[in-house]
């Protein structure tokens, strides 16, 4: 390693926690991840958004050192996952998409067993398990078997399991999938708390409100490629404007909007107009064509997402 790249006399350059350059993963002729570049800095929450099959999970698996890359560069903690998988895995915590808790053990048993895989001494592990069960509000369920837990409890336990080795980097693949609002809020809160303690967090999600709420920066992926990168607010203002007018679609309204010379999008029974001054557009529409239903709202990440990845169903 060339140390000159990372430090100089004026200060120390801190390499990113994850650095991907031209990262690629192919299965036969199909490129699941196709030449992507990104860097995750220490202490940030970095999101991967994209429809099913976009390549998010494949990217996570390459970072976790459980799926070797086909081409390109990837460094985690400035180490090559192909060469130092055990060192890297010692320093990361993973919340997988699929719930893979061990059904042969209780909540506590699952965490203790996991601690053993990290070579954590038993007495230290016991204390940490207690702390973590409290952290995810599962102390009372410590000796309950996995089958008796609700979906939300299982996800919380998986979060606790991912923290057993005090990871510097936490990777979460769809952390709140299928959870009720209470459980989602609890997980969000905990993730923010972990970030404030200096953890770096990488997550994938379909929930755009989740991404907007949690992520400092995010990328939108589709077909194995990164389409956009930025902060949630910069992506919204760049691609969706400030506000959106939604009007019920009929021929009169369409005629009228075409006459106004503003960009618009038709979806199902609604027409969407993005504008910096939605109220002015709405006023004009109201005067000119008297739509039956109309509303104005702030643009969201969902508008950006649908604009960039299209409305076609993926699977």
């Amino acid at each position: 390693m060339d140390s000159n790249n990372y430090s100089n006399k004026r200060g120390t350059y801190i390499p990113p926690v994850i650095l991907a350059e031209g990262l690629k993963k192919s299965y036969g002729n199909i490129a699941a991840v196709d030449n992507i570049n990104f860097a995750v800095q220490k202490g940030e929450i970095f999101g991967f958004l994209g429809p099913n099959g976009a390549g998010k999970t494949t990217t996570m698996k390459m970072i976790q050192c459980i799926s070797p890359r086909s081409a390109g560069g990837l460094r985690v903690f400035d180490l090559d996952p192909d060469e130092y998988p055990d060192i890297i895995k010692h320093r990361i915590g993973v919340v997988p998409q699929e719930t893979n808790l061990d059904p042969d053990f209780t909540c506590e048993g699952n965490l203790l067993m996991y601690a053993r895989y990290f070579d954590i001494p038993k007495d230290i592990a016991k204390d940490r398990v207690k702390e973590l069960l409290t952290f995810v509000s599962l102390s009372e369920k410590h000796d309950v078997s996995i089958e008796k837990l609700s979906g939300g409890m299982k996800r919380r336990l998986i979060l606790a399991r991912a923290l057993i080795n005090k990871p510097e980097l936490l990777i979460l693949d769809e952390p709140t999938i299928g959870l009720d609002p209470q459980a989602r809020h609890l997980i969000w809160e905990r993730l923010k708390l972990l970030q404030s303690q200096g953890n770096t967090i990488v997550l994938t999600t379909h929930y755009l409100d989740e991404a907007a709420r949690l992520c400092d920066r995010l990328v939108i992926m589709d077909n194995g490629k990164i389409l956009e990168e930025g902060t949630p607010s910069s992506l919204v203002s760049k691609h969706a404007g400030g506000e959106i007018v939604e009007v019920e679609k009929n021929n009169d309204v369409l005629e009228c909007i075409r006459g106004m010379n503003v960009p618009f999008e038709e979806t199902g029974d609604t027409v969407l107009i993005s504008a910096s001054d939605a109220h002015e557009i709405a006023r004009q529409l109201l005067e000119k064509c008297r739509p039956k239903k109309m509303l104005t709202r702030p643009a969201t990440l969902e508008d950006v997402f649908l604009k960039l990845t299209g409305r076609r169903l993926r699977d």
């Binding site: 976790q64 459980i66 998988p85 055990d86 895995k89 010692h90 993973v94 997988p96 699929e98 893979n100 808790l101 061990d102 059904p103 042969d104 996991y114 895989y117 990290f118 070579d119 080795n165």
Partner: peptide, 14 residues
């Protein structure tokens, strides 16, 4: 069925 191997290889074990 239990996905135990997947869970274990997320730790330092290969």
């Amino acid at each position: 069925y239990q996905k135990s191997f997947d869970a274990i290889i997320a730790t330092p074990l290969s």
